[in-house]
């Protein structure tokens, strides 16, 4: 029998727990040439800002063992352009749309949430964890008080459920997650990239023009699993686990650690069909291991 892959987050049903993570999937348009976007659990769109943003100068990417560093710097056409020109394309597909928003100030997050009120997207994702911008970004995500304020403020303006995307660059991820839940946040996605650096020894220069960047890929999977596990112990709101997922078995690990769904990021850069491949592998894993419903796995870690 075909196993059940659907999961529910904040009352919204996902046909499977695999979501394309923000920043690795554009607005879906490029990937639609390679895969049927209807097969995805959801799509978290490229991080948006109130006004268009040019992003950082190149080089913006460096390869490190089992990982990549990036410093795109939130290049995007702005939220108005997204709503008018990109979203209509995306809405043609039967998948869940998560809009990743970024602000320099709390007010900017709120204004974006207002603009999205009457737009048929399923979730907002507050990116308070981008390591590649000078203002806002990760600075918001490292203090529980600020995380509380921003979550509470946006909740007052948002119509859709609000996910808060956390940075791993903190001493205690648990207190940050607790602040999200206390402020009324509907869910948590974690982790964003780990701050890192690559150096070209021959040239004696940093590889990235931005000097530092965010590390992603299998290299950070153990960190992500640990943080999902820690957060799952202290909050009861749903978790979207992100960090180095490249196979169906990786998804199983994140669900066992307590995630309800997962975000697949770096794998999309390696293969445009990665998300679909991972869904198929997950299904195959479940058949082989006699798991009839993916929900059986969530939080099922034996310790």
């Amino acid at each position: 029998m075909k196993p059940r892959l659907d999961v529910e987050i904040c009352g919204v049903s996902f046909k499977n727990p695999v979501i394309a993570a923000s920043g690795t999937f554009g607005f879906g348009r490029e990937y639609a040439e390679y895969v049927d976007l209807n097969m995805l659990g959801g799509i978290a769109v490229k991080g948006l800002t109130l006004l268009p943003k040019k992003g950082n100068p190149p080089p913006r990417i460096a390869e490190t063992p089992s990982g990549i560093l990036n410093s795109v710097g939130l290049q995007n056409p702005g939220i108005d352009y997204f709503i008018e020109h990109e979203l209509p394309e995306l809405l043609k597909y039967d998948t869940r749309i998560i809009v990743n928003i970024n602000g320099n100030t709390i007010d900017e997050y709120c204004r974006m949430a207002e603009k999205l009120r009457d737009v048929p997207v399923h979730f907002l994702e507050l990116n308070i964890s981008c390591p590649n911008v000078k203002q806002g970004g990760v600075a918001f995500g490292t203090h529980p008080d600020v995380v509380y304020d921003i979550t509470r403020s946006v909740k007052a303006h948002a119509k859709q459920p609000v996910l808060v995307k956390l940075t791993p660059n903190v001493t205690d991820i648990k207190e940050i997650a607790i602040a999200v839940e206390k402020a009324g946040g509907d869910g948590i996605s974690l982790i964003n990239t780990v701050l890192g650096m690559a150096i070209d020894a021959k040239k004696r220069r940093p590889v990235l023009a931005n000097i530092v960047g965010g590390l992603s890929g299998p290299a950070i999977k153990p960190i992500a699993l640990r943080m999902v596990w820690e957060v799952a112990q202290v909050v009861s709101i749903p978790i979207i686990g992100i960090g180095g997922i490249t196979t169906g078995e990786d998804v199983v690990e994140f669900l066992l650690a307590g995630a309800t769904a997962v975000g697949v990021g770096t794998a999309n850069l390696i293969s445009p069909t990665a998300c679909i491949d991972i869904v198929n592998q997950l299904e195959e894993y479940m058949v082989q291991n006699g798991i009839g419903d993916v929900n059986e796995l969530i939080g099922g870690l034996r310790v």
Binding site: G23, T24, F25, G26, E30, Y31, E33, Y34, K46, G55, P58, P59, R60, I61, I68, N70, V72, Q75, N268, L269, P272
Partner: peptide
């Protein structure tokens, strides 16, 4: 990165 226009690096 991706080679297909998705990742903007």
């Amino acid at each position: 990165g991706c080679g297909i226009g998705g990742c903007l690096v």
